[in-house]
Amino acid sequence: MEERELLNCLTEDVSLGMELIIRQYGSAVKTICRSILSGYSKEDIEETVSDTFVGLWQSKDKIQLIEGHGLKEYLYGIARRTALNRRRSLAKKQPAQDIDTAGELVSGENVEEQIICRSEYAVLYQLIDSMKSPDREIFIYRYFYQHSIKEIADKLTLKAKTVENKLTRGRNRLKQQLIRCGVDVA
């Protein structure tokens, strides 16, 4: 279902809209929350996932679609902020064993640059989302959450060399796909 249809459905019938959005993006939101809250309890992660969808519902009127896209990115941003805030509050009570801070995305100065940047990120997220497991998780851990090769290998019970090889192949595939989509990868 297209993002515009999902957003309309969310506005017209909240329960159906949320059900469809959770069905379509729930696993990615859970992956984001689990990555940021790695080392914390399953209950904390599940609560953060729920809070993410509540946050989406509360801010549904603020979502601006550009060329029919933007809902997924907005939702993923809510998931990331919600998980980071939860991690900060939990860290005061009980520090996790491995906490890394994800880097902030940077957008351009003017409106045109921001729109181009958002659309390029949308393409990037779609390509990453389409990667097979564990390549997708390896890529997200490394480039979105800056985990070390060893940390990724430990989390996914893989050899460090396997993680390195998958990252190299994944980068090359992603670069080729971005070029095909018309994104400048200079």
Rank of each mutant, 00 (worst) to 15 (best):
residue 2 E to R: 09
residue 4 R to W: 01
residue 6 L to M: 11
residue 10 L to E: 02
residue 11 T to H: 13
residue 12 E to M: 12
residue 14 V to W: 07
residue 17 G to H: 02
residue 25 Y to K: 01
residue 33 C to M: 04
residue 36 I to N: 04
residue 36 I to D: 04
residue 37 L to H: 05
residue 38 S to D: 13
residue 38 S to R: 11
residue 42 K to M: 12
residue 43 E to M: 12
residue 45 I to F: 05
residue 46 E to T: 07
residue 47 E to H: 07
residue 50 S to W: 06
residue 51 D to K: 08
residue 53 F to A: 07
residue 57 W to E: 12
residue 59 S to I: 06
residue 59 S to A: 15
residue 62 K to W: 10
residue 64 Q to Y: 12
residue 66 I to S: 11
residue 75 L to H: 03
residue 94 Q to D: 11
residue 95 P to H: 02
residue 96 A to C: 04
residue 104 E to H: 12
residue 104 E to F: 12
residue 107 S to N: 12
residue 107 S to M: 15
residue 109 E to L: 14
residue 109 E to Y: 14
residue 112 E to F: 15
residue 113 E to L: 10
residue 115 I to M: 07
residue 116 I to H: 03
residue 119 S to M: 14
residue 120 E to M: 04
residue 120 E to H: 07
residue 124 L to G: 01
residue 126 Q to F: 02
residue 133 S to Y: 14
residue 137 E to G: 04
residue 141 Y to H: 08
residue 142 R to E: 03
residue 148 S to N: 06
residue 148 S to R: 02
residue 149 I to E: 04
residue 149 I to D: 04
residue 155 K to M: 09
residue 160 A to M: 09
residue 165 N to D: 13
residue 168 T to E: 15
residue 168 T to D: 12
residue 173 R to Y: 09
residue 173 R to I: 13
residue 178 L to T: 10
residue 178 L to F: 09
residue 181 C to K: 11
residue 181 C to F: 06
residue 183 V to S: 02
residue 184 D to H: 10
